[in-house]
Amino acid sequence: MSGVEKIAVRVTNIVPLNALVTRFEFKRSDGLHFPTFSGGAHVVVEMQDGEILRRNPYSLMSDPADQSQYAISVRRDDEGRGGSLFMHRSVSVGDEMLISNPVNLFALDLRARKHLMIAGGIGITPFMAQIKQLSRTNGNWELHYASRNAALASYGSELMAQHPNGVHIYYDDDKQSIALEALLKGQPLGTHLYICGPKGMINWVRDTAKKAGWPHEAIHYEEFLAPQSGKPFEVKLAQSSMVIQVGENQSLLEAIEAAGVDAPYLCRGGACGQCETAVIGYDGKFLHNDHWLTNEEKASGHKIMPCVSRFEGKTLVLDR
């Protein structure tokens, strides 16, 4: 039971923001209102990319209270498997697409006395929605946003204009960086820290906060791992009595779905735990790419997260 509710939408606007990032705006095909959502939520967008049905998660960055449209911003990844390239090259205004209902794995902790947000690059998108939500409810927040330069700082000037006191932007090209230790030191009790950006930045902020004595309950981060390409491999699905092939640019989860086997998922980015699948037998090596399984679980050879992880070797038998 994947249980993910789908909404049919039409692409109503495509806005290139800079050399890498483009915004896509959607309205519902049936003319009804979208559900409201909470800042930090994502939707899974379905893309029929040739033979492969891709489902990629993107953070909603429109106003959560605006039920007339949804918007996502997609960064083109020339090295990736093609989901973002498909969005950039093959999607046109007027196209009909399917998206999931919003799912939030990066929600604001509404008890926070203050929300301290750290964004890197395209990691700005969930904060766009969170800032709109907090502005409406008079929330106490502050954003620190690092980007390569002004041209690539998507929504940077818009945020600065709207919230001159709450937004701080740093450009790598100008050798600017967040004075993180000092920033963390001055935060009042009850502050919650949110991080979205590249893996290196997330690790740096988490480690620095941990060393400053911040409890992990106050540290929230979101990193969507894009599934990695890799060598093709073969998998036996025991419950379904089938043998399937996983292609070079296909994830294991996508291959399971392509075989018509229903598999649960929420984030498709190795974070939520929904697609966790038991391994019945194997002869080879796992390429675990998720942040869900513990290191012990990864080493045990008993579990795999098929949304982002792969396998190299002779045989893999899954309980699916």
Partner: peptide
């Protein structure tokens, strides 16, 4: 708990 935490909007 795992089931309830993944109850989704509209479902």
């Amino acid at each position: 708990l795992k089931f309830l935490m993944s109850v989704q909007q509209g479902a």
